[in-house]
Amino acid sequence: MRVTVRLFARLRDLAGAGELTRDVSAPATVQTVWDSLVSEMPSLAEYERTMSVAVNAEYSRMAASVNEGDEVAFLPPVSGG
């Protein structure tokens, strides 16, 4: 199934794109999507300990399940204000 991946800030710079589509086999979790990204782009791996994740623009967890058409976002530590 196909999901949309959103990357922000330095994660976006490292990946060279802020939006990607990925095919992952069901059943999948946020972790599955992340692992698929890291296998292609190992430089992203350092963020696994510090990032947050969101599914369809709601905060989520790595173990959350992902469905066809979902938007999965990976968010480095935030620095707004």
Partner: peptide
């Protein structure tokens, strides 16, 4: 500063850096 997904890309004399604070 703790939970809003916004990031500062700081441009300074001699370079640039993404600031990273709290894990949201």
């Amino acid at each position: 500063k703790q939970i809003v997904p916004i990031w500062k890309h700081e441009h300074f004399e001699g370079g640039e850096v993404w600031l990273e604070g709290a894990t949201a």
